[in-house]
Amino acid sequence: MNKVTDRLYNGIVKENPTFVQMLGMCPTLAVTTSAINGAGMGLATTVILTLSNLFISLLRRFIPDKVRIPAFIVIIASFVTLVQFVMQAYIPGLYNSLGIFIPLIVVNCIILGRAESYASKNSVIPSIFDGVGMGLGFTVGLTAIGIVRELLGSGTAFGIRIMPDSVAPISIFVLAPGAFFVLAFLVALINKINIGKAKKQGTEPELCKLADCASCQNTMCQGSREAKEV
């Protein structure tokens, strides 16, 4: 039981994929035009992450080491296709607004990253909860960005009007540039907190280094580390 809560805490808070690891930036920026879209994308990713972690953990003794990446990709792509069909059938509205980003879950760094660094090395139960924790962490991140953008851009949250009518919505926030600005300010806020903490402890502040892609410490992005040395 202890291990289960530890995995959940690790995914949602300690190694939150959006705010701490900065993984999966493409869907983070693209689908967060509203809180509902962000939450929907996060939950779809959670389902796929949990299922792929479960299966990769079950098959970890049978997948030869040399072909593990293609094998993981096939497993993930199969679940993505399944989830895509389920969403198309039962929630067509959300399916249409997420559009191409549902099949693109296949190349989300978080999923292959968890498969490679956790599920392929650990037993089934912790792997499932690792998937649930990471997925929920991603959902929390996307929903938070979605709420901010929706509130500023159209004055609503989850479709419910919050801002008074006298406050004109700043529509740039639901358009493409708004995604960059909101994320920039959130990261700056996190940096500010980290700098404050470091000053108290008298240590060097740990600034978010998204720009170096140092956060992509998994196989997906290993090229970026090499590229940095060029």
Binding site: F180, F181, A184, N191, A211
Partner: peptide, 22 residues
């Protein structure tokens, strides 16, 4: 500004570029 060093200032530059491309 110190808290905008690294990722945030790059994201803001990208946002301004996105406005230009709009």
């Amino acid at each position: 500004p110190e808290s905008f060093k690294g990722a945030p200032i790059v994201l803001i530059s990208a946002g301004l570029m996105a406005i230009a491309f709009m």
